[in-house]
């Protein structure tokens, strides 16, 4: 009995784990807040701004990541309604959109390089563009990992509780990545001149 009780407490308390994810999001948020404050301190102190028009590619990537949030939302809802086929389909869609986002961001770097806006730059404001996007891409890669974990769980028919947990876990993070990107993009747009 005691054992069963302990096990029950151990096994099913997923709420703290989910809470851990929220806390991680706070740390991530602070990280990006620090980077953007760094930008403000730098550009305020040196008087050097970004001084270019950002490539349009960033606009497309923004659209893509917003759509991916919608598809993930649909996948989550499907999972709750026990429509696992639909869940998998939309998870795949989300992951593909995520990879597309990654590709567009890298393409945007190529465009930047063509504009002679390099990472190694005497105007660090321009280097900051790479820092923002690069650090954000690391988060996207981690997010993709969580998406695939949810996906593999769904294929393996893990218990519904865990399936939903993985979906939520991935969901919290993915929507966060989305919001952070919008924040970074708007921040860059506001500072591009």
């Amino acid at each position: 009995m005691i054992m069963a009780q302990i096990q029950q407490e151990d096994k099913l308390d997923l709420a703290p784990k989910k809470f851990n994810m929220w806390l991680f999001i706070f740390t991530s948020f602070m990280f990006f807040a620090a980077l953007t404050s760094g930008f403000i301190v730098y550009s305020g102190g040196s008087g050097k701004g970004i001084k270019i028009i950002l490539p349009h590619a960033f606009m497309y990537s923004t659209a893509v990541i917003i759509i991916s949030s919608v598809t993930l939302f649909i996948a989550s809802r499907a999972a709750k309604q026990l429509q696992f086929e639909k869940q998998r389909l939309f998870l795949w869609l989300t992951a593909i959109l995520g990879i597309a986002f990654l590709a567009i961001q890298i393409y945007a770097w190529v465009l930047l390089v063509n504009m002679k806006v390099y990472l190694v730059n005497s105007n660090a404001s321009q280097s900051f563009i790479y820092m923002f996007t690069g650090m954000h891409l690391l988060h996207v890669i981690a997010g993709l990992g969580l998406l695939f974990r949810a996906l593999s769980g769904s294929y393996k028919n893990i218990p519904q509780v865990k399936n939903l947990f993985r979906m939520e876990f991935a969901g919290i993070f993915w929507h966060f990545i989305d919001i952070i990107w919008i924040y970074l993009y708007v921040f860059l747009l506001l500072n591009q001149y």
Partner: peptide
């Protein structure tokens, strides 16, 4: 949790 990420940045 709030300050170490800033050091990382």
């Amino acid at each position: 949790v709030l300050s170490f990420p800033v050091l990382v940045a």
